[in-house]
């Protein structure tokens, strides 16, 4: 019975001030989308670091027209170099197999690539990865080398970009969260004002504090949850449309985002949305519904 009363109050409350409710939900969902994007990026960078840093440090890509003699000269030079710890030859086939593993979630992308379009390479682990410059200088003059790439440097640049995107997303999330909080606070004030007679009577006859406050807090929580669900939907759609679709080019550097991670955002956003709204509502009530 009391539950029914409280739920009814919540629905009536949300409907009574429907423009505010909508504003609340929109800001909340934008903020939570940004939060979710930022967390996803964070997880992504982490995953990529694990994936790449454990792998070969310096790649020496060979020209398509490299001769066997050139190849063995390069192999010898690497083996004899004092900086080398270990080396590994990667054929076009090897490269393609690896490629298939990394992009297993994007079969279309795999289809567009053949083993021939990938270069052969030597993957060299240095005793001290910082010595990359010296090592590259010593190797650079050799015939048949297309390019020498220190993956660490390359990855660092990529990760720096990701980190700044993540930071930007966090800042937007924070600013929107602030706006959402102010809206929640204001909505609660308006609601408390429009129900001031009921609240006065409830206090007079000794209704418990939680009973007086619950409808207001739940109103905010409901808006927070709807915002979170919307935010999650935005996030999911963006992932599908942008990364899996249009911006597939980007996925040359980005390892695919597992759908499991994206689903993980639903409970996270819902939890954050509900908790933040509840706390804001409750704090606002402490000022506007003094017992």
């Amino acid at each position: 019975m009391r539950l029914k009363y409280v739920l009814n109050e919540v629905l009536v409350g949300l409907w009574r001030n429907v423009t505010m409710t909508v504003a609340m939900i929109i800001t909340m969902s934008v903020s939570l989308t940004m939060l979710g994007a930022s967390v996803l990026l964070y997880m992504q960078v982490d995953q990529m670091k694990n994936f790449y840093y454990g792998e070969i440090e310096v790649s020496i890509f060979l020209r398509d027209d490299v001769t066997d003699a050139q190849k063995s000269a390069i192999d010898q030079a690497i083996a004899n170099n004092a900086l080398t710890e270990s080396r590994q030859y990667e054929s076009k086939q090897d490269a393609f197999k690896k490629f298939q593993v990394i992009w297993r979630d994007s079969p279309d992308f795999i289809k567009s690539v053949t083993p021939d379009s990938l270069p052969e390479s030597y993957r060299v682990k240095l005793k001290d990865p910082e010595q990359y410059g010296a090592f590259a200088d010593q190797m650079r003059g050799m015939q048949g080398i297309q390019d020498i790439v220190d993956q660490r440097e390359l990855l660092k640049k990529v990760f720096d970009i990701f980190n700044s995107i993540q930071l930007m997303a966090l800042v937007v999330a924070g600013v929107m969260a602030l706006a959402a909080l102010l809206l929640v606070g204001n909505t609660i004030q308006v609601a408390a004002y429009s129900k001031r007679r009921e609240v006065a009577v409830m206090k007079l006859v000794g209704a418990s504090n939680w009973f007086i406050q619950a409808p207001f807090v739940l109103e905010a929580v409901a808006a927070g949850l709807v915002g979170a669900i919307l935010g999650f939907v935005f996030l999911f759609i963006s992932k599908v449309v942008l990364l899996d679709g249009r911006l597939q080019a980007l996925t040359n550097v980005l390892t695919p985002i597992p759908n499991g991670n994206v689903w993980l955002m639903l409970p996270l956003l819902a939890g954050v949305g509900a908790l933040v709204s509840a706390v804001t509502a409750w704090v606002t009530l402490r000022f506007y519904l003094r017992v």
Binding site: M1, Y5, V201, V205, G206, A207, S208
Partner: peptide
């Protein structure tokens, strides 16, 4: 009835 309901009495 409101006074009763808000202190937890049934309908």
């Amino acid at each position: 009835a409101f006074a009763l309901e808000v202190i937890g009495k049934t309908k």
